[in-house]
Design a protein around this nucleic acid. Structure first.
Lengths: 120, 120
DNA sequence: CCGCATCCCCTCGGATACTG
DNA sequence: CAGTATCCGAGGGGATGCGG
């Protein structure tokens, strides 16, 4: 059992790491196929995508549905528990976007948002 | 200039890492002395505390005030920008606390909250 | 009391190649 | 298309000791 002194640390354990929050974010609007996620999320590697999804699954935030067909098809969805993070993820996203536009932060960070990245 | 595809990543850049969110969290209710933070935050080392504070300072979330006296006294405070994260940090904390109590998560995570950790 | 400098471990995550 | 197996480098972060 891992011990923490604050719920904040637990949340970080669950959606921390380089990709977990982002992947969960893109499952908020419905199921996505593996290849779809791979295409949507810039720069994520196959390995990290799968690993990240496994971790989210283990945490109960994501479910995996496999279709027995050729070629293979797998869909990932956010659970209700995962969806309960939607407002928080959106706020984190908005805060970051706003921050990047601050005078002193400008020139530091740039957000290059592709069409597919937008959360409806 | 660092490029991101989503504001979420920017926020993670600013309050990510092992300690940044937590330290900022404990500055929400007013200025704290270095030694105070060191005492309040379990397990953080001197090095990481200072390093974390420097990074938060560089991001404009924290200010440092030094009193020229012997023995030395330094106080850190959250800026307005830092305080704008308060609701989000609280939500992250609450979500984590709630998550840790879920049936399947129980036995995985435990939150041991000292008196001093409570955010008023 | 406050902070810096070293040294160094070790984990995270990237590249690549391979299977069903 | 979906996933696994290795290999490996960078760097985050811990321990310790020194200085104002």
């Amino acid at each position: 059992m891992k011990k923490f002194s604050c719920g904040f640390e637990v949340t970080k354990e669950v959606i921390g790491g380089k990709w977990k929050g982002l992947v969960l974010y893109f499952l908020m609007n419905g199921p996505r196929r593996t290849s779809e996620l791979k295409r949507i999320i810039p720069n994520i590697t196959q390995k990290m995508l799968i690993q990240t999804l496994r971790e989210l699954e283990a945490s109960g935030l994501v479910t995996r549905k496999m279709y027995n067909q050729v070629p293979p098809k797998v869909e990932y969805s956010s659970t209700e528990l995962g969806k309960s993070l939607k407002p928080i993820l959106q706020e984190l996203c908005q805060w970051g976007s706003h921050y990047a536009e601050q005078e002193y932060a400008e020139g530091e960070y740039e957000i290059v948002q592709s069409e597919q990245l937008k959360l409806g």
